[in-house]
Design a protein around this nucleic acid. Structure first.
Lengths: 166, 166
DNA sequence: TTAGATGCAAATGGTTTGCATGCGT
DNA sequence: ACGCATGCAAACCATTTGCATCTAA
């Protein structure tokens, strides 16, 4: 989970830490599909064939929640030659760059949300589907006070849903 | 993840569904360690040596967040002969019975919280530690409206923490 | 040219399962 | 005695890694 090596993730994490990478470019909500290359460059990543394709699949349709496997299948269906390992690498790099957000919801699969801004989720049990919750639909009135010496990184809320019994 | 078979989890899930199992017995916050057997019986589980030991380890100290592996180690250290598989089974059964609560936090390990009541968590990145957030320390002012046909099962909030940079 | 990217296949790590044996009730 | 419970080892599955081979810059 923690990219400690410098092998696969190249210098993206380091550069992001030094603030050399913009991450969220100028208020982009759903990155423009016609400029994945620019997005990649901004993220400090080389624009290779597979990354462009993956970026296109991810951001073309806006607000999506996908697992590595899902993206991999889409890529294969779209006749884009790519390996699962590369899908994982790309997803992680885009996450580090701040263009994707990882959502831990049920302990097994990991979801990546193309909406990297602060918001919460509905999770439909059984269907394993994730839905964004409109930001203004939930309000955390009193932010909890973290223990001494710690600071809040982010707050994730998951509202678990079930089909109504009727 | 989903116990669809009737093999290992015996009839606990079904009975719980039919309301035959009390689950949360009368306002028990941290179950009394001196009566694990009663707790098990109430949960519709046979009180075997290992379940009693695990129940004791889990509930004796109150509010804990443990993974199967952690509990397994504690059991081994306590000279209680038990297998990892049994630890998993027991944890799941206690969860179904409403005595434990599963907390999904980082996609890999699954945590089980001995506090099964509605509350939220701090998660310390790096240390992989979970902390309860005092119930009145957070207030979700506006509960999100679920999509048509769905109902809210529960709301989980995870406040991710990091050691302050100083 | 060359650092960085890709793809495979093998390795991991948490969790589950099949089945023979054990043990509450 | 009966039927659920246990233990083990193998099976699983999502994810990661090592390394040889490519390729964007």
């Amino acid at each position: 989970m923690t990219p400690s090596r410098t092998k696969v993730f190249t210098n993206v994490p380091e550069r992001a830490e030094r603030g050399e990478i913009s991450g969220q470019h100028a208020g982009l909500t759903g990155c423009p599909w016609h400029d994945v290359k620019a997005m990649l460059r901004d993220a400090g990543m080389r624009s290779t064939r597979q990354r462009i394709a993956l970026g296109w699949l991810l951001f073309a349709k806006g607000g999506r929640h996908m697992t590595a496997e899902m993206l991999y299948e889409e890529a294969i269906n779209a006749k884009v030659p790519v390996s699962l390992a590369t899908v994982y690498n790309t997803l992680h790099q885009l996450t580090v760059a701040g263009l994707l957000r990882q959502v831990a919801v049920d302990g097994s699969k990991t979801y990546f949300d193309t909406n990297a801004s602060q918001h919460h989720h509905f999770f439909v049990e059984g269907e394993n589907a994730l839905l964004d919750i409109a930001d203004d639909d939930v309000v955390v009135a009193k932010t909890p006070v973290p223990p001494e010496g710690y600071e809040i990184v982010r707050i994730d809320m998951v509202v678990r849903l079930r089909r109504k019994a009727r």
